[in-house]
């Protein structure tokens, strides 16, 4: 894990800049505007919760931040890189190096053990097998799952699965962690454990986190809460 080596002095500087970002889809002949002229700045080390009703555009915004989708117009700059100008293959490479995703349903590979799931992003790097093993062990230790390294996802509880997913998101030391309803599938106690873990990662490791959630209690763990409605920040 290289997260320890994060440049603390960089905390507070701008990581994400959205300038007049719009996103629309075509539904038949109809144009559906999901994001309207959105401007937003996120600093390094921030923990931002995005809230809002369904269809408000928060997941679309998260997808844009993760390079999974491209804006229809506007400038999207993350860590100095213009995502809005990247091709699909450039975005793929950018994602591998800069983003860690945490999903509502964990999205672990069922045929891989926890350890192998966590190793996946590292397979896209030039690290040796021994180096990968070391990073994976550190990530699993950080989420408190060292003992479960050789367990398959179906042998883990929901909370444990999400911890593995968090370890997978962290292992390649990305610039930003993007969480889409990370506690949406968990009971209250487990959800709190996961949120506390995210909070710790933010406070102690300096990780920049953007979390989409419907749950106000989850949002309370963030440093900043932004509400969205009809494609705008309110």
């Amino acid at each position: 894990m290289t997260a320890q080596a994060v440049n603390k002095s960089a905390i507070g500087s701008t990581l994400v800049e959205l300038k007049s970002i719009s996103k629309h889809y075509r539904k038949g002949k109809e144009k559906v505007n999901v994001l309207n002229e959105l401007n937003l700045t996120i600093n390094r080390g921030d923990f931002l919760a995005l809230m809002g009703p369904s269809g408000s555009g928060k997941t679309t915004l998260l997808n844009l931040l993760g390079g999974l989708d491209k804006p229809s117009s506007g400038e999207l700059i993350i860590g100095g890189a213009r995502l809005d100008q990247m091709s699909n293959s450039q975005l793929t490479r950018w994602r591998a190096q800069n983003v860690g995703f945490i999903f509502q349903f964990y999205n672990l590979m069922p045929v891989l053990t926890a350890e192998k799931n966590v190793e996946l992003p590292l397979l896209l790097t030039n690290l040796s097998s021994a180096q990968r093993k070391k990073h994976v062990a550190a990530a699993l230790s950080l989420v408190g799952l060292s003992e479960r390294a050789d367990h398959y996802p179906n042998e883990l509880s929901g909370g444990q699965e999400q911890r593995v997913a968090i370890a997978r998101a962290l292992v390649s030391d990305p610039q930003i962690l993007l969480c889409d309803e990370p506690t949406g599938d968990l009971d209250r106690t487990t959800a709190d454990e996961i949120l506390n873990l995210l909070q710790t990662l933010n406070q102690q490791q300096g990780k920049t986190i953007v979390m989409v959630t419907h749950d106000p209690r989850a949002a309370d763990h963030a440093k900043t809460i932004l509400n969205m409605d009809k494609g705008r920040l309110v």
């Binding site: 993760g66 293959s89 793929t92 994602r95 995703f101 349903f105 590979m109 996946l120 992003p121 896209l124």
Partner: peptide, 14 residues
């Protein structure tokens, strides 16, 4: 579908 999408999100190529 979800596995493929997850791999693509992590950075595996199309």
């Amino acid at each position: 579908t979800r596995e493929i999408a997850t791999l693509r999100a992590i950075g595996f190529g199309s």
